[in-house]
Nucleic acid binder design. Structure first.
Lengths: 265, 265
DNA sequence: ACAAAAGTGTTGAGAGTACACCCATGC
DNA sequence: GCATGGGTGTACTCTCAACACTTTTGT
């Protein structure tokens, strides 16, 4: 048996004095992925307050009363990046009693996928010497509760700096999950804007998987899914032959669900 | 915006008077799977106290202070079934603010796999008219905090009775995850005792997938994994030719990890 | 005409699926 | 010797991986 044998007291009321709902605090942390410069990046925040002041950490904040988990994650996401309507999936809940030196804090972690080229996010900066400041400002990030001087930057997801708390494990896990799902589901389309060329899509897959793919095989496979619709448009990258723009066809989704190809959840 | 705009206050101390750690309460609920009578079953508990008194629910209880999530899940599992050292995996965290009528309760859900034929678990009883009483008794189940008259029974996992809270969704999700992982990982071996015949293993797979499998293909596939070692022993099921007993060879695991076949986590 | 990326087919290997008969044992 | 489950092999299909050249455009 560990030290505390106490069982929480339970009360039906909700908004009054203590002791009321006495549980651990719950943080919602998000791994926000995006492909930039041909690499998979994750958004990090520099903590402005102890503990781990000055350390990089995942964006996140505390769950509010009467707020759902997904809702909280979307709120954080919006606060950090200004985006809504992106792919968001719950990852795992980390609950080591010592993961936060301040006391008991669970972290319900999520991962989100931002389309390559999205605006409303901090510029890509080599994180080791990040000098960029906050590049957004509606509600302000919650993470450094009480802190100020924050920075946000896109870090290489495969080579992050030292992170606060157990955020390194969270990031690792998110990377793993993303890679795993990339092959068996359609999450990959979440990393690409609504209209994209097949080469762009391939670059995104390559960035996540960390290896080159064969152009012909990739195109065949992705087209065989039957969820891409060619548009009339094309995009000319530099001074060369224009590439056809495709878009994601939500209509053709259901066939895949049945095959179990889509997100299993 | 929802009603409460309050942000939790944060204090460094931990064990004193309130206001201290003010977060939602956190329950740990477990879907305990087992194959019996050729069907996939899940262990359910009849609630002895409101809310949902008399309703069936997943076994579970509240997270204790200073207790890790996995630790809590294992404790619950031990309390409900007496077993330890079985496959246990975190499933998902359910956080709808209205999921518990008493107030805010998160449910960190797990699923566990018990080897077919394990003792120390309630007898199989048609759940609709379950008459069996508690068949175990070290700490006693935590779930019906304050309740008494509990029962436990194995329900068909594909056709459960009406469940309390959002436990139906949790069970659904667990079934889905189990099925999904069965093909791509080695979780299936968690549902089988340490030594088993190939037919027993096949029956378990069939119960989970809900369909018949071809004997020859099944054997080829499962042997091709290279993680089964034939033992000297055999088991004679009834009055017929004895079947070879196999065991799981943990040694040959690592090859699979690399191929990504093992649990992705 | 040339540079630069877009686009396109074929072949071989391995995995999955469908399918039917002989074998060892207890009675 | 027979009933019962244990155990085995082959052919077809499909998916995946390897591999190189022609086309279109802007300069």
């Amino acid at each position: 048996m560990t030290g505390s044998r106490m069982r929480y007291t339970w009360r039906m009321d909700s908004g009054t004095a203590c002791p009321k709902a006495t549980g651990p605090r719950v943080a919602v942390d998000i791994v926000i992925f995006m492909v930039r410069e041909g690499r998979l990046k994750a958004l990090l925040i520099k903590r402005g307050a102890p503990p781990f002041q000055g350390r990089w950490a995942l964006p996140g904040g505390f769950l509010k009363e009467d707020e759902g988990l997904d809702e909280a994650a979307r709120r954080e996401l919006r606060e950090e990046t200004g985006v809504a309507d992106v792919y968001l999936e719950q990852l795992y809940t980390f609950g080591n009693p010592r993961r936060d030196p301040r006391g008991r804090v669970l972290s319900v972690s999520y991962f989100a996928l931002l389309p390559a080229g999205s605006a409303a996010a901090p510029p890509a900066v080599p994180l080791r010497r990040a000098e960029n400041s906050r590049a957004f400002g509606d509600g302000g990030p919650l993470l450094a509760a009480g802190g100020d001087a924050e920075e946000a930057a896109w870090s290489d997801a495969y080579d992050p700096p030292q992170l606060a708390f157990d955020h390194a494990a969270i990031l690792d896990y998110a990377r793993q999950r993303l890679r795993w799902k990339l092959d068996w589901t359609t999450v990959g389309f979440g990393l690409v804007p609504s209209r994209f060329t097949l080469t762009e899509l391939q670059r995104v897959f390559e960035a996540v998987l960390g290896k080159r793919l064969d152009k012909r095989n990739f195109r065949r496979k992705v087209l065989a899914l039957g969820v891409l619709r060619p548009t009339k448009g094309s995009r000319t990258e530099g001074l060369t032959r224009p590439a056809r723009l495709f878009e994601f066809s939500a209509a053709k989704f259901e066939r895949l669900r049945e095959r179990g190809v889509l997100f299993p959840f």
